[in-house]
Write a protein that binds this DNA or RNA. Structure first.
Lengths: 222, 222
DNA sequence: TCCTATTTGTGACCTTGTCACAGATTGGAT
DNA sequence: ATCCAATCTGTGACAAGGTCACAAATAGGA
């Protein structure tokens, strides 16, 4: 599998700190896996998925309350590495998250037990893992700052701006429900606020899509 | 300073992975520092304080919004090590926090530049730092879960229960203002809720103190 | 064309935060 | 002992956003 190896080498900065034996052991326990849109690939109950590299698609990492409320912490895209899917490997991670595939997604999954075993013996692997966790910590802090400190209209503006920047073009193909989920807000509030934006001539709405028609006005809300 | 060395050895799990030279370098750049109650020992603007060990007292780590709103992330007590005070050392930490001394506090402070220099060369030190950051990540997730998912009365009950468990005894010497700060809520809401608790016979209030008179009822709210 | 699922719109109500005070308590200073 | 000023606590009116219970509009398939 030369493709798998070339991906792992690029994503795992510890790759050349591994012995040949360790490298081979990882390669032997890494599989390409497909998750269809909407499927769950990690939750509190599910056994540890392992370390994941996104080949194609998108993952959403979120917190889930007992009553079923969700807060999206961050999203992962092509080439991102997900370590919280292997939280069982890191004893210092004492919380749980859920991870869903947001669209049809191809992953490389490194077996958790194997990764764990190597991380225990090789500090570079251990260190890599905790560094990655710290990166996510930063993402979560950003999400937290938004949720706790910014008004909903401002956050919505930021969200829309981020989405069009990310995808190119000015049309966001998402239902209000999805936007609400990503932002950690209530769908009704998203609807109301989007209609307000539409009245201001900032966006044009139609079922399932939001088109930004005045980027300048949008940025003024930022 | 044999005292400083004995504290550092106990708190820095990488201590016996250091060369004699590195150990000495750290010892030469560690100082005992006193921060009076209410003083700030780290903020976005202040230059990097360094790695801190709490000898005696208490630190509060919080996020600060542009408008001055605060959210307490976690608190640190005797023997805790604070790594976010040295966030400049960890490139993967891309957010900023504020840290105040909550009461008169004695610290050991390891110079940031020296620590950074050693962390760059010694993976064990680097790894230790990111592990510690991940511990705090877990604390923050707990705070986040509380703030976003739990009703205020439940959170207040948890807060009171935690405080009496921590201090022993049943009296909490804190103003409503302080409670609000720790919980990330509004003082008026704390006042209202405490009065409600008092009506239910759960607590007895007087200026500056909250006494829990019925722990069973309190736990029923948990 | 019709049927059904999904998406969007709307109003009433709840919780919590915000603001603007007023009243109570406390610890000095005289 | 008395008064003063600072701090702490209490309260009401209002705003933002979440929750609930629907109704209306819109797509896709059969």
């Amino acid at each position: 599998m030369p493709e798998i190896e070339s991906i792992l080498r690029r994503r795992f900065s510890f790759w050349d700190r591994l012995s040949d034996r360790e490298r081979q052991r990882i390669l032997d326990h890494t599989a390409a896996v497909f998750f269809p849109k909407g499927s769950n690939l990690h939750s509190a109950e599910s056994k540890c998925a392992g370390v994941v590299v996104v080949k194609r698609g998108e993952l959403r990492v979120y917190m889930l309350s007992e009553e079923g409320k969700e807060i999206t912490l961050y999203r992962l895209y092509e080439n991102d590495v997900c370590i919280l899917s292997a939280s069982c490997v890191l004893q210092h991670v004492t919380f749980d998250v859920n991870i869903d595939a947001e669209c049809d997604t191809e992953l490389l999954v490194v077996n958790a037990a194997v990764f764990s075993e190597i991380a225990e013996k090789n500090v570079y692997v251990e260190c890599f893992s905790y560094k990655l966790a710290t990166d996510r910590f930063s993402d979560v802090m950003w999400a937290m700052q938004q949720i706790l400190f910014m008004s909903f209209d401002r956050r919505l503006a930021i969200f829309l701006a981020d989405e069009i920047a990310k995808n190119g073009g000015d049309t966001i193909r998402m239902t209000h429900e999805q936007v609400a989920k990503y932002m950690g807000g209530a769908r009704e509030v998203v609807t109301r606020m989007l209609n307000y934006f539409a009245n201001e001539g900032i966006v044009a709405l139609s079922r399932g899509t939001i088109r930004v028609v005045d980027k300048k006005k949008l940025k003024r809300l930022l």
